[in-house]
Amino acid sequence: MPRTSLDPAAVAALTARLPAVDLRSPSGRQPVHTCYVPADKVTDSTVADWGAQALAALGSRSPSAFAALLGVPEDLHERVRAKLAAEPVEDLRIDFEDGYGTRPTEDDDAERTALLVRRWVAEGRAPTRFGLRMKSFDTKALADRGLRTLDIFLTALGDVPPGFVITFPKVTSVAQVEVFTDVLDLFDHDLRFEIQVETTQSIVDGSGRLAVPQFLSAGRGRVTALHFGTYDYTASCGLGAAHQHLAHGACDFARNVMQVSAAGHGVELSDGSTNILPVDDNVDHGWQTHYSLVRRSLAHGFYQGWDLHPNQLVTRYAAVYAYYRETLAADARRLKAYVDKAGGAVLDEPATAQALSTSFLRALDCGAVTAEELHTLTGLTLPALTALARRATT
């Protein structure tokens, strides 16, 4: 029997002090975007109206012209058209904050829009995810108003349906998250919220510590996502208007902090918006700008972003579909080689197999690929892909 010098009992006593590792990935389907609509503009037909306008914009370009404009395959035109016809909006946020402005009262719109959401859910017309963005806690007056709107909305809504989420904007301190979480405890609902990261204080606090981990801890499991706010954040950094855009290095820094802070917490990430809208004589430029920024976000691991106008749905889906389909065949071969232990020029590890499988499942969720395509290309069933994405087979 081989000799050892370590006392097993002493080793066991030491390893017993190790904490359990609890690394979680976001569960369920993550939408590719969030559409913000001012509360006073939300009607019973808002989702259908956004889809119809986006379809009309796409229809103004032939498949060849659309492909040439964005540098995508011509068949993407039909894929995007089908998506816009079937599910134009994956996530809708009824906005009582910046998009809504300051009004004498929000009460009527809060109750009216909640009743609309209640009808959508009852009739099976609600987006996969939906909710409201309330006022911030910048001042006590704003906090009181935001909480009143939330109370009226939730009272009119009744039972909180699956997919409902609250957006908590302009967070500047962990105390705000603590108070908001305590307020949510007062409601008889299992409420979840997303934090908008749009101030410098939401990246680094006054003592020089990263703020996001503290926010997540203060949320006590209620925080589902971190959403980046392009223009408030760049303004808080002191950037001039000409340099307030998603591709600025200041935004890259903030997003990197969000990524490392959220990793392992089961929290989704969403990028911000662009104010260059594809409207009037600016459609082509607006589409090209939006397309390139969405592709940039995807390359940096942000699979969701804000859309502020129906015409942006066209390039949202064009960018997302192109991103997933461009490497589909090569990624499938790579995953198949890993599963078959076929070897080759690339020696992939379980982490890469996880990333490939997760990407396939994201593509399936948004409609970029079909289950049949994935099975044909990889030879794997959806349960097998899901197991690889969770690293359950290692």
Rank of each mutant, 00 (worst) to 15 (best):
A57H: 11
Y324P: 12
T352R: 07
D307R: 13
A247D: 08
D307H: 12
V257N: 03
V42D: 09
C251M: 04
A9P: 00
D185T: 10
N275L: 03
N282C: 08
G240K: 11
A332P: 11
Q354L: 07
F66Y: 12
A16K: 03
G264K: 00
Y36Q: 04
V32D: 10
F153H: 10
A384D: 09
V183R: 13
F360C: 11
L55N: 11
L147Q: 13
E178W: 07
D44N: 11
G305M: 12
S62P: 14
P278F: 03
T15H: 09
A371T: 10
L335Q: 05
V294P: 07
V165R: 15
P169G: 08
T128R: 15
L246E: 01
F253A: 04
S27E: 14
T149F: 11
A211E: 01
S292I: 06
R333N: 14
R222Q: 00
A387R: 14
K135P: 01
D44C: 07
D22N: 13
T370W: 02
P8S: 04
L132K: 08
P310C: 11
L239Q: 00
R296S: 14
A387L: 14
L115H: 03
R192V: 15
F168E: 08
L154R: 06
L154F: 07
Y324F: 15
A85Y: 03
T393L: 15
E178I: 07
D151K: 08
S25L: 14
L23Q: 09
Y323V: 14
G208W: 14
T381A: 12
D205E: 13
E268R: 06
K41P: 01
P104F: 10
A363I: 01
A48H: 05
V117I: 09
R148G: 07
V47R: 05
E372I: 10
A52L: 12
T274K: 01
A322V: 10
A351P: 01
T46S: 13
D159E: 13
L313G: 14
V279Y: 09
A9C: 00
T352I: 09
V42S: 07
P88K: 03
L361F: 05
V260Q: 06
K140M: 12
L277W: 09
K336M: 08
T386S: 11
L116S: 04
T200Q: 15
A262N: 02
A156Q: 01
C35W: 12
G131F: 04
L132I: 15
S136V: 00
D49W: 05
L6E: 01
Q288T: 14
S357W: 00
